[in-house]
Simulated assay, not measured.
Amino acid sequence: MTNKKVATEPNDLGKYFVELANAGDVDGLVALYEPDAVLAFPPGNLATGHAEIRKVYEQFVAAAPVLEPGRLHPALVSGDLALTAATLTNGDVTVEIARRQPDGSWLWVLDQPVFQA
């Protein structure tokens, strides 16, 4: 099941993540990232590239989590880079860096879904 979402704004990525995760769409989740992106999840682990990110999300959706959209913070955009962040309903904070693609869409390059100070 693939429901490729095209992010026309950096914060679209966070919205689409919740939709795709709740639908169990691993392919859709992986498509939110650049091919060589780095995902820091679960905390203490790094997944680099689509193949490793796919493994993380296969395990994640197998647990059938029900995600609630958190509060998206305004994206901080400088040229083709954007810092995105959200406060989740449990109080955790996510922090990501997205890059504008040649077609004008956005993909995550770095993703720290559970930021711990």
Rank of each mutant, 00 (worst) to 15 (best):
M1L: 10
M1D: 10
M1R: 13
T2H: 07
N3L: 05
N3A: 11
K5G: 05
K5H: 14
A7L: 02
E9P: 07
P10M: 04
D12S: 10
L13S: 02
G14N: 06
K15Y: 14
Y16N: 12
Y16A: 12
F17H: 11
F17S: 02
E19A: 14
A21V: 09
A21R: 00
N22H: 09
A23E: 14
G24S: 09
D25S: 07
V26C: 05
D27C: 11
D27Y: 07
D27L: 01
G28C: 10
G28R: 07
L29C: 04
L32E: 00
L32S: 02
Y33L: 08
P35H: 13
D36L: 06
A37T: 04
A37G: 09
V38N: 08
L39T: 08
F41A: 12
F41M: 02
F41Q: 00
P43N: 09
L46M: 15
T48H: 14
T48F: 12
H50F: 05
A51P: 12
E52Y: 00
E52K: 11
E52R: 09
I53A: 05
K55H: 00
K55I: 02
V56S: 03
V56K: 02
E58M: 02
Q59Y: 05
V61T: 10
V61S: 06
V61D: 08
A63Q: 12
A63W: 09
A63Y: 04
V66Q: 12
L67F: 14
P69G: 11
R71E: 15
R71I: 09
L72N: 14
H73M: 15
P74K: 13
A75F: 10
A75M: 00
S78D: 15
G79I: 07
G79E: 09
G79A: 13
D80F: 06
D80T: 15
L81T: 14
A82F: 04
A82M: 08
L88H: 12
L88K: 08
N90S: 12
N90V: 00
N90T: 03
D92G: 04
V93A: 10
V95P: 01
E96P: 01
I97K: 03
A98R: 09
R99K: 15
R100Q: 14
R100S: 08
Q101F: 11
Q101R: 07
P102Y: 03
P102T: 14
P102M: 10
P102A: 13
G104M: 11
G104D: 08
G104V: 03
G104E: 00
W106E: 02
W106Y: 10
W106D: 11
L107Q: 15
D111W: 00
D111S: 05
V114I: 10
F115K: 12
Q116N: 11
Q116R: 08
